[in-house]
Design a protein around this nucleic acid. Structure first.
Lengths: 189, 189
DNA sequence: CCTACCGATCGGTAGG
DNA sequence: CCTACCGATCGGTAGG
């Protein structure tokens, strides 16, 4: 199931999944964007679900590999969290289509990919909550429920969707700095 | 287009729109949940889009009437924002189905409802940004881009979705207090 | 509120 | 990579 045109198909798919939603982005629309007939898509991939799986798996892998590279560094917990928050912000800026789809359309994943994805996500959030807890114990982070803190900043970052849709009076750099000031500042003692 | 069973139909619709998504929540599924045949739905309403419109319009009206009641009180800007943030948190806790649908499925609204909804939302966010700006000028809120601050806390509150899906080890009250501590605390000087 | 049905569109396949 | 097509499902309507 490899093909030189697969990356191109995935790119168009991610864009259509984000703008139309997974269900409204029909294989016929994807094929039209690529410039071939819908039946021809199936010589490059085996199903629509496989496209979604590829996108979600790619994003989840990015997040997991990033946290692993940060987790065992010698930074303080809050600095680690800041690095991770910045990485998520940049994903929403630079890999908008795929980051958005992995966040909003994963529920259409066919099994067993759905269960795998949710498991990975649960583990990932647990690691983040442990970092928050660690920061609280070290007196670096204010007393706050770690899980609530994690879902709060992860969801907050999804708000970049509205910056993407806007006329972007704020630059990407300003956006990142302002959001970090809010989300990291809000964790500090 | 009034009917004694309409509230019941709207309740089931909101629930299915949230869990299945607007498109996957077919009129046949809604009818089955209500306990009638799908054709019979059309004696209570004229289209699927009308259901979505009713839900989105209800939520937008709640938010707008709430901000208007807070806007001209004599509280400080930060206190006003805290009241609004708490109202949004409670909507996600107590009116989860409808709040979620208005936030995630509005893009399927038929025109002219789509344009109306987006206009109302733009005005609402502008009012919130003005409150943030006011707080900055009064030295009560840290220097931060007001629009970025608004999309950050509004999106953060959507993270309550994950609390709703969880086993809820945290009570609704604790959730609200922790989220307020993070989101209001992160705005303070 | 139901039976019966419409045209449109879907994901996917056969066969070349 | 295309032509031609499949069964399933969709939102909605006619007529009672």
């Amino acid at each position: 199931m490899d093909s030189p045109r697969k990356p191109e198909i995935l790119r168009h798919s991610a864009h259509l999944f984000r703008t139309n939603g997974y269900i409204d982005a029909s294989m016929r629309k994807i094929a039209a964007a690529v410039g071939i007939d819908s039946a021809s898509l199936y010589s490059h991939l085996k199903s629509k679900g496989e496209i979604l799986q590829t996108i979600c798996h790619w994003a989840a892998g990015k997040y997991l590999s990033n946290i692993e590279s940060v987790e065992h560094s010698d930074q303080t917990p809050l600095k680690k969290l800041e690095a991770i928050i910045r990485m998520h912000i940049r994903m929403m800026i630079e890999e908008y289509d795929r980051a958005f789809v992995a966040e909003h359309e994963w529920n259409h994943l066919p099994e067993p990919h759905l269960s795998n994805f949710l498991n990975q996500r649960r583990i990932y959030r647990r690691k983040l909550a442990d970092l928050v807890q660690d920061g609280i114990l070290k007196g670096e982070i204010k007393k706050i429920d770690p899980y609530v803190a994690v879902i709060t900043f992860l969801s907050a970052i999804q708000g970049i969707e509205f910056w993407q849709r806007s006329q972007k009076n704020t630059s990407a750099e300003e956006l990142e700095e302002n959001m970090v000031r809010y989300l990291v500042g809000g964790l500090k003692m």
